[in-house]
Simulated assay, not measured.
Amino acid sequence: MPTDKKRRVTPSREPEVLLDDLCNALLTPSGREEMRNLLRDLCTPAELRTLAERWHVARLLDTTEMPYRDIHLATGVSTTTIVRVGRFLRLEPHQGYRRAIDTLGARNAR
């Protein structure tokens, strides 16, 4: 039974509703350890590894001149995934990778 402090959640199958709810949850951690704990609760170890690998590939593509094949050999990430990350980093309109990389770069420059 929800208490007064808990907001009642309505069941949904709508992808945008579900994604918005997930985004709200991902905005709640106040530090790396809290985020790590939330991700460990949300994801399987394989899902976490996949997310971490994609992020690593995005940073490699952004900060090095390594060819996709060399990234594959160095990381074990499939070339299909590397191509996809590269496309989203450089071409797709969402620009999530770009914004995160730039934000981290600006924080590290301070």
Rank of each mutant, 00 (worst) to 15 (best):
L38R: 00
L42W: 02
N37Y: 04
L61F: 06
L22C: 03
T79K: 08
A106K: 15
L104K: 04
L51N: 08
L60I: 13
T63C: 10
R84C: 03
T64Y: 14
R40Y: 12
N108I: 12
L48M: 15
L26D: 01
L51V: 15
E16R: 09
R87Y: 14
R7A: 10
T103W: 12
I101F: 09
D4T: 11
L38D: 00
G31P: 04
G76M: 01
A46P: 00
G76W: 02
R40I: 07
K6E: 15
E47V: 04
A74D: 08
K6F: 15
L89N: 03
H94R: 13
S30N: 15
R36D: 11
E14A: 02
A58G: 07
E14D: 15
I71P: 05
L73D: 14
I82R: 02
D102N: 14
D4R: 10
A100C: 08
T103V: 06
R8P: 01
K5N: 14
L48W: 08
L18P: 00
A52G: 05
R69P: 01
D4K: 09
L38M: 05
T103Y: 15
R40Q: 13
V17I: 05
Y68T: 10
V57Y: 10
T75N: 01
A58Q: 01
L104G: 12
T75P: 03
E16Y: 08
P15K: 05
D102F: 02
L22I: 12
E16K: 06
R87S: 13
M1E: 12
L48A: 09
N108L: 15
L42S: 01
P11K: 01
M1V: 13
D4W: 11
G96Y: 07
R98Y: 11
A109L: 12
D102Y: 06
C43P: 01
C43W: 01
P67T: 15
T28E: 11
E34A: 09
V9C: 06
M66K: 15
R110L: 07
E65C: 09
E14S: 09
D62N: 14
T80Y: 00
G76D: 04
E53R: 14
H56I: 06
M66C: 09
I101K: 06
T28A: 08
R54E: 01
R107N: 14
G86T: 10
V9K: 12
A52T: 08
P67N: 12
A46S: 13
H94I: 14
L91I: 10
L89C: 11
A100D: 07
L39G: 00
E53P: 03
L19V: 02
E47H: 04
T103Q: 13
Q95K: 15
R98E: 11
